[in-house]
Design a protein around this nucleic acid. Structure first.
Lengths: 218, 218
DNA sequence: TTGAATATTTAGATAAATCTAAAAATTTTC
DNA sequence: GAAAATTTTTAGATTTATCTAAATATTCAA
């Protein structure tokens, strides 16, 4: 078995390698794990010895198949527990991330499968992130960041990529939650802020916010 | 916050001090924690520094109020999660102990209270053990071990005090599960084995088994 | 293409939880 | 009540994950 720390490293490396395909750098991992580069180097050696990553000194790391499987399994558990907390225990979507960070390390294959079944095999977590299935397969999706859309485009908010309570509460105040239909009214050249049409009302959101919202606009 | 290990020590000390009121001995803790006496001594110093136990060298330990509160909180979580696993995720009563050993350390007060509510504020776990309430209060009970009963006594099986899969499966084969009404037909002087009347049928159980079954016989 | 800036690794420490072996305290037995 | 047996503690190592400071490698920019 892998320690909590090892699992968290794998998860972080997985997420970082999704952003840009190139090998993940030590400093990026250090930032993601909120630790120092020297600590990352130590752990990379360990993960490499366990054949969970391919690691070349000074060149960064990529996950091996074994490492990827482990990372996806942790992500699956994280997202299923989030669904449980929101759907069954009435938590708000901005309250579940921290608890799921703990629950994701509970170690029982049977538990995960029973939980999945109990929840009705959900496809997405409360933040709109896809939940990989039993075999680690993600449903293919054609999402786009809000800031990549053009004037007149329409779509449904399908997810976010920041999970702080501050950010999620901000979205809620604006009425920007999962499943909401939006339309791009205007994009300001000046600062990249965007005017949206939501439920008949006009809303202005900053560029920072548009970069953190995923939209499904098939 | 306390580490998983610290919480497990407190839980073990709590259970041992329930058996006989006297201070709990180092060796007993070592056995309960499946570790060495030397390791126990180290941890006792630590727990003592944190004022979770009263510890006198060579004399054994008792929990302080603070230590007791922590132990009971962990036990509450353990038992609530067991109810969840059996009632909601269709686990068998002999499959839940190990998983609950992990879940009991998840650290969120709100989670425990929401879980309790979701489960309908259960009073007992699947093994018949009482679940302390929000304030750490156990429902008073007048249970007795099966081996303390006399010929002719009747009662309802309310719990067990061993949780190995082997033992629980054995009980199931005998039809001795929580809620079953039993009557003592005969107690053998020879080996202390007991003949029970269960559901109209006669069943023989060894002394070892009778020592591990709790009966409510009001 | 070389010097400066940046990124990464190494070296050496620290803290938590554990271990074995040996010493010390307590209890039991005669 | 002293010797033997048992229990507990101490001393010193080990493992995991972390840290700071210094050294080294890589990249960038003039």
């Amino acid at each position: 078995m892998h320690s909590f720390t090892e699992e968290n490293y794998l998860k972080t490396i997985y997420h970082l390698s999704q952003l840009n395909d190139s090998p993940v750098q030590t400093n990026a991992i250090a930032e993601g794990m909120k630790t120092r580069a020297a600590s990352v180097t130590d752990m990379l050696k360990k993960l490499s010895d366990k054949q969970l990553i391919d690691y070349i000194k000074y060149q960064g790391v990529t996950l091996t198949d074994k490492g990827k499987t482990t990372a996806v399994s942790v992500i699956r558990k994280h997202r299923l527990w989030e669904v449980f907390l929101v759907e069954k225990l009435k938590f708000k979507w901005d309250e579940v991330h921290e608890i799921a960070e703990e629950l994701e390390h509970i170690n029982s294959g049977l538990l995960v499968e029973r939980l999945d079944e109990f929840l009705g095999f959900p496809k997405r977590d409360p933040h709109g992130d896809p939940i990989p299935d039993h075999n680690g397969i993600f449903e293919p999706d054609q999402n786009i960041h809000l800031h990549e859309m053009s004037r007149g485009d329409k779509g449904v908010i399908i997810g976010v990529n920041e999970y702080t309570s501050a950010f999620l509460k901000h979205l809620e105040r604006l009425g920007l939650t999962i499943g909401i239909l939006i339309e791009i009214e205007e994009i300001a050249d000046y600062d990249g802020s965007v005017e949206l049409l939501v439920d008949g009302k006009k809303i202005n959101v900053s560029k920072e916010v548009t970069q953190r919202i995923l939209v499904n606009y098939k």
